Computed example of a mutant assay.
Amino acid sequence: MTSTTTVTGAVFIATSVDGYIARKDGGIDWLTRRDDDMSETGYDEFAASVDAIAMGRNTYEVGLTLDPWPYEGMRVLVVSSRLDPDSDTRVTVHRSIDDLLETATTEGLGHLYVDGGQLITACLNRKIITELTITTVPVLLGSGLPLFGAIADDVFLEHQRTTTLSKGLVQSVYRVSADAMLEA
């Protein structure tokens, strides 16, 4: 892919204390059934700071179960080799990360919200991610889908801040080390 625009990505995600973002079946009931005021997490400000959201098919399918649709008003890019491209007019389906990045570059979408464990890992391996905001929810799941898969190289992070939110949620923000980005 030839690019004149650098596409970067940021992560804003919740995990259990034991590092899972969903149950093995993709369920996030442990998160959605909480009666916390999630506005205090800074999600709205974060979402307003990005040009689009990029997610994998599994994350998209979880979003379909939520009412209302959580991405209203956002440009949504889904990476999937199986999803029918015409199945949902609210999203654009891309067959590969290369297709996604080409579209982002063409459309001038320079800063993406990257969501979903597999896509986050793939974007970390491509050195696209510049910041991670991880909110830890005080629950142990014991098993499930981990936030990170196999990372090709060490990713050095610079801690920016940690905030304790209501009901025991802990949010940490990390920047990917500039040295790690130079090696891209």
Rank of each mutant, 00 (worst) to 15 (best):
L77C: 10
I28W: 15
D115N: 11
V114I: 15
T32A: 12
H94E: 03
K24F: 06
G26I: 02
R33L: 14
S81T: 14
T106D: 14
T121Q: 10
D115S: 13
H111A: 01
T65E: 03
M38Y: 14
Q118H: 01
Y20N: 03
D67R: 11
G117E: 04
P70L: 11
P85L: 09
C123I: 04
W30P: 04
Y113I: 01
M55K: 06
R33H: 15
S39L: 14
D86L: 05
P70H: 12
G73V: 03
D98W: 00
L101H: 07
D86T: 01
C123V: 04
Y113P: 02
D25K: 12
C123A: 11
G110F: 03
E45L: 15
I53G: 00
E102A: 15
A54C: 12
I97W: 13
T92M: 10
E40Y: 04
E72C: 07
D67I: 02
R95N: 09
D88P: 08
R33C: 12
T41K: 06
Y113K: 05
K24P: 00
E61Y: 06
R95V: 04
L83F: 06
Y20A: 06
G42R: 10
G110L: 04
E61W: 10
D88K: 06
H111C: 05
R57H: 05
L101S: 00
E40W: 07
D25V: 12
P68L: 11
L31R: 09
F46R: 03
L124M: 09
L64N: 08
C123H: 07
A48D: 14
E102N: 13
D88G: 01
G73L: 01
L83Y: 07
E72D: 12
I21R: 04
R33M: 14
Y71G: 01
A48W: 08
A47M: 03
G42P: 04
G26D: 08
Y60A: 05
T105S: 14
N58D: 02
S81G: 08
T65A: 00
G116W: 02
D18W: 05
V114M: 03
L66W: 14
D86R: 03
R34A: 13
T89H: 05
S49P: 04
E61H: 10
L83G: 05
E45N: 14
E72S: 08
D67H: 13
I120T: 12
L119T: 07
V50K: 06
D35L: 13
R95L: 08
G63I: 08
V91I: 15
E61V: 10
G63E: 01
R82F: 05
D86E: 11
D84C: 08
A52E: 03
G63H: 04
L77W: 11
E45R: 15
T59F: 12
T103M: 00
V17C: 05
T32D: 09
V93P: 09
D35K: 15
A22M: 02
V62I: 14
D35W: 09
R57N: 09
A104D: 00
I120V: 15
S96I: 00
V76Y: 01
I28M: 15
R75E: 13
P70R: 11
A54S: 13
R90E: 10
T89G: 10
Y43V: 05
D44I: 06
P85A: 06
A54N: 09
D98R: 04
T59P: 02
T65V: 02
E40L: 01
K24E: 15
I53K: 07
L66C: 01
M74E: 05
L109R: 09
T41V: 03
